[in-house]
């Protein structure tokens, strides 16, 4: 899977797992995913759902809720995190 394919797949996975619709213009690679200032405004329960979906899809277990929050800072950050964990 190329880095671009991974980014695209992660965007779809995050939206699907958190059951959110894509914001206008679609998610960008570097935009914040958490907090009131972000367009998607994910919370800890969304993070749990996304981490479970990642475990199912990529076989990467994100065992620590704070680690998951850090990995989910942005789509690009998540892609780097997964690439490192799968290396």
């Amino acid at each position: 899977m190329t880095p671009i394919d991974l980014i695209d797949e992660l965007k779809a996975l995050v939206l699907d797992a958190a059951e959110k619709t894509a914001p206008p213009g679609g998610l960008t690679d570097d935009e914040l995913l958490f907090g009131p200032e972000s367009r998607l405004a994910l919370d800890s329960l969304d993070a749990l759902q996304v981490s479970m979906a990642i475990q199912e899809r990529f076989g990467v277990r994100m065992t620590d809720s704070k680690e998951t929050r850090r990995a989910l800072t942005s789509i690009a950050h998540l892609a780097r995190h997964l690439s490192e964990r799968r290396a």
């Binding site: 800890s44 329960l45 993070a47 749990l48 277990r61 065992t63 620590d64 809720s65 704070k66």
Partner: peptide
């Protein structure tokens, strides 16, 4: 999920 490292997280540790 929010206290410590998550209930499951402690099992993983």
């Amino acid at each position: 999920e929010e206290i410590g490292t998550g209930g499951a997280g402690f099992r993983f540790i």
